[in-house]
Simulated assay, not measured.
Amino acid sequence: MTRYEEIDTLRGLAALTVLLSHFMVVFDFNTHNTYAMGFATNWYKYSPLHIVWAGHEAVLFFFILSGFVLTLPFMKNHSFSYRGYLVKRFFRIYIACIVSIFAALILKWSVVQNMRTVDSAWMNTMWDEDFSISTIINHFLLVGAHSGEISPVIWSLVYEMRISIIFPVVVYFVLKYDWKKLLLFALLLSAFCCILSAMFSNNTLNNLLLTGHYTSIFIVGSILAKHHLTIIEKMRSIKRWQKYVLLIIGVLVYTCNWLIDPDSFVHNILIVDWTATIGASIFMMLSLSSSALSKLLKSKIPSFFGKISYSLYLYHLTILMFFIKFDTGLPIALTLPLTFIVSIFVATVSYQFVEIPSMRAGKIIANRLKEKLSVSKSA
């Protein structure tokens, strides 16, 4: 099976944009409408430049990349083991996540007696109350409608784990049916879930409906995986100026959430998530089809961020909240660079000593399960 290093790097770049988006939250800049503050304040918020810190869009990018990467083995491997698949997925996602939750709890309890407030309303609500036992249990089980009381980034992993459980069924239909029908189904599923979610205020129901919505994003990644060789071949055949036009279109639709009036009827989760999905799909296919871009993405520094992307996503906000909440006396101008440096260091350690051993363990257990199944069948 071909491994695309560019995909890992794209995940790393997406993790960096999530980090930068949370840096902007510190200034209470990304959490409310700032149109009235004038051009000087908003020129890079309500413009395509927002791509640098488009956090929610980056999470959608994660979902597309996961759908893409998880589909590739199904296209080559005819001896599929569901138990082996779940074991590897569990060890890939869950172990590092649980360790990060423990770290978040320790850091939160260490700042309880020495908290400070900042200008960010959102930041001031984080870690401001003791966690209930049910909240802690739900975080460790990755269930419930997480608002991120302990580790705010966990919300996306709830959907990642849920969708991973049913994903082999998704791939079965993706590989069997025409992409047009599949894409139409994904759109209808997404629309159905988003409309119902807007109609009801029940958190549990909305959480399940959003699972359906995000499943449709995974389906897009799976469709791209199925047809990626054809798409890459066609994109390599187009002229350079056409690729630049595609790139511009990708940036515009990816940042559509910030280019249209938030009070407009077209500014809703269905439209902004799907436009971001289109943009992310364009970026991914351009990355795989352009030799120059591919070479850049596979260079040393971008590849490094690709490797530590998951741990960087898990830890950066916990570290940021610790430095923000703990009254160190450091100004924000120093707190943010310090957070960046520490986050990279912690992510590197987590990758080496948590992620890699977890993935190895998952593969070993999955292979043993496969061997036992083979023995039982032959017997």
Results as ranks from 00 to 15, higher is better:
Leu141Gly: 08
Ile166Thr: 14
Ala379Glu: 15
Val87Glu: 09
Leu334Pro: 03
Pro73Gln: 02
Val111Lys: 11
Lys239Tyr: 07
Met123Arg: 11
Tyr85Met: 02
Gly362Met: 13
Phe173Asn: 09
Ile344Asp: 07
Ser378Cys: 15
Asn33Lys: 10
Leu157Asp: 10
Leu252Ile: 07
Ser378Gln: 15
Asn257Thr: 10
Leu320Met: 08
Phe140Lys: 08
Leu259Pro: 02
Ala58His: 04
Lys243Thr: 05
Met37Phe: 02
Asp327Leu: 08
Val26Gln: 08
Pro48Trp: 01
Leu189Gly: 01
Glu129Ile: 02
Asn77Val: 04
Tyr244Cys: 11
Leu60Asn: 09
Asp28Trp: 03
Leu338Tyr: 11
Asp128Leu: 04
Ser289Phe: 06
Phe23Met: 11
Met123Asn: 15
Ala121Glu: 15
Thr31Pro: 06
Pro73Met: 00
Phe27Gly: 07
Met321Val: 07
Ser222Glu: 05
Trp109His: 14
Gly362His: 07
Val171Trp: 12
Ser289Lys: 03
Ser222Asn: 09
Ile269Asn: 04
Met199Cys: 10
Lys377Leu: 03
Phe265Tyr: 10
Tyr315Asp: 07
Pro357Glu: 09
Ile195Asn: 15
Asn257Pro: 04
Trp127Ala: 14
Glu149Tyr: 15
Cys256Ile: 05
Gly38Ile: 08
His227Trp: 14
Trp127Phe: 13
Ser291Gln: 01
Ser290Asn: 04
Met24Cys: 05
Ser343His: 06
Ile365Leu: 00
Ser299Phe: 03
Leu16Cys: 01
Gly12Ser: 01
Tyr254His: 05
Met123Ala: 15
Ser66Tyr: 02
Leu209Phe: 13
Ile364Arg: 13
Cys194Asn: 14
Phe74His: 06
Leu142Met: 04
Val375Arg: 06
Leu334Cys: 04
Phe345Asp: 03
Leu296Val: 13
Lys295Ile: 03
Arg360Pro: 02
Tyr244Met: 09
Ile364Met: 12
Gly148Thr: 01
Val354His: 13
Arg3Tyr: 02
Ser374Ala: 14
Phe200Pro: 09
Ile217Glu: 01
Lys226Arg: 14
Phe322Cys: 07
Gly38Phe: 06
Ser290Phe: 00
Phe131Lys: 03
Gln242Ile: 08
Tyr244Thr: 12
